[in-house]
Amino acid sequence: MKKTIIYTILIFGAIMFLYPFLLMITASIAPENEISKLTLLPSSISLNSYKQVFSKVPMGRAFINSLIVSSTITLGVLVFGSMVGYALSRLEFKGRNLVFYIIIFTMTLPFQITLIPQYIIMVKLGWVDTYLALIVPYLMNALGIIMFRQYFKAIPQDLIDAARIDGCGELRIIFRILWPNALPALVTVGIITFMGSWNEVLWPLIVIRDQNLMTMPQMVTLFVLGGRSEGQLGLKLASAVSLALPIAIAYMFFQKYFIQSIASTGIKG
């Protein structure tokens, strides 16, 4: 009896969370006259909405832009995060605590305070409407550094000593010795960073005006808000599905890692 109640609640809950997504997908592939019915079973499948979206705005280009931006940022956060995390956990130097406190401070600093000056920096550097504006301000972050610092602390000193005796430099130690032993940290920081930058929309809206440089969330937002979608529901939903699909597919395959990574940091990008 009790089990039935539990499963009823769970199934009801799952429907609440999945049904809107299903509705969005089916409506986006429904023939034109059935879209507004928001039915789960369209009489036939039509890719017309997608064709129109991709012909009205350079959505393919936006996908490539998002891929370039998110991959570069993720690589940067992994590389620089592990360098600083290594220095903070494994090297002795004057001012080490100060650097650590600075990093903790940046974590508690609300972004609302730096938004305007960062935009002005982009203007003064001439980076508005370039990839640089989308990438460089995100190349390093406190979270990556702190995760790697924690993780590297737990790696036995013998491993590093042995590498030193073999004549490894510090960078070789980080990327050849520590990285293979820090896969969980790489996965966690990688997923969070990639997802965060893939879904970021406020900053692109501020620094990018050129349609050819827009990332997907920005493109979809402006497409839905602006006149391009001409208020056609099918086009709006098709553009939303195109934006959701890459992350949703990645999530389907690496679901366990996604949930663990995000839960372990409490950050959702």
Binding site: G13, A14, F17, L18, P20, F21, L23, M24, A27, L38, M195, W198, N199, V201, P217, V220, T221, V224, L233, K236, L237, S239, A240, V241, L243, A244, I247, A248, Y251, Q255, F258, I259, I262, K268
Partner: peptide
């Protein structure tokens, strides 16, 4: 239950608009 967490806020907003 976790799916909406990973999907962009833009997608969720367009969904809820409907």
């Amino acid at each position: 239950f976790f799916l909406p967490v990973v999907v962009s806020g833009v997608v969720v907003t367009i969904l809820w608009q409907q």
